[in-house]
Amino acid sequence: MTHKAETMDPQGPPHVHHMDATTAYGAAKLGMWLFLATEILLFGGLFCAFALFRWTYLEEFHQASKHLNVWMGATNTVVLLISSYFAALAVDAAQHGNNKKIVTYLSITMLCAVGFLVIKYFEYSSKYHHGLSPLNVEFNSPEFNAAYKCFFGLYYCMTALHGLHVIFGMAILGWVISKARKNRFSERYYTPVEVGALYWHLVDLIWIYLFPLLYLVG
């Protein structure tokens, strides 16, 4: 990375700063990738648990997954894909130093995120009305099918953890938007836009696996 900095440094000799702009940009991005690696392993533990219990209760998981609304799940998948597309366009706008477009594109991403959470809310409340949530008394009774409890337990853990990531991602993107409004970014400095978008793409990436696992194949 340092050899790259020497040849590509846009701001001349790096003696003034602790790090020159290119090195700082590369280091921040690499740091984000390392964090994303830990995120994959965080969800990975849950994916592993899901794989094991699905293998143990194959038929019951298949039946339980039919209680989930495929169309809501599919719509949410497309909503997140579109949100990721606009996050990528925001980085492109940043690479061209266009703060106005960063605000526009990231606002669309945020709007998609809100849409995702609204659909998720309708899904959760419909599960509650069908007695399929830990908030329902019958769900917690010993007579309730153990495999169903296991499936919905994993469903809530995985989707709620993912939902928290959506909310956290929105907070990050909101902060990036507020900086872009003050024209803080240029072709030479847009690290928060890039790093924030990377985080958002991970949120999309996790859902790409969650949707077919939970809604389609059970």
Binding site: K29, Q95, R188
Partner: peptide, 14 residues
Amino acid sequence: HGNGLGHIIPKSVY
């Protein structure tokens, strides 16, 4: 762009 930091991908690719 020459002085840009990351790689710029054509928008059509996105």
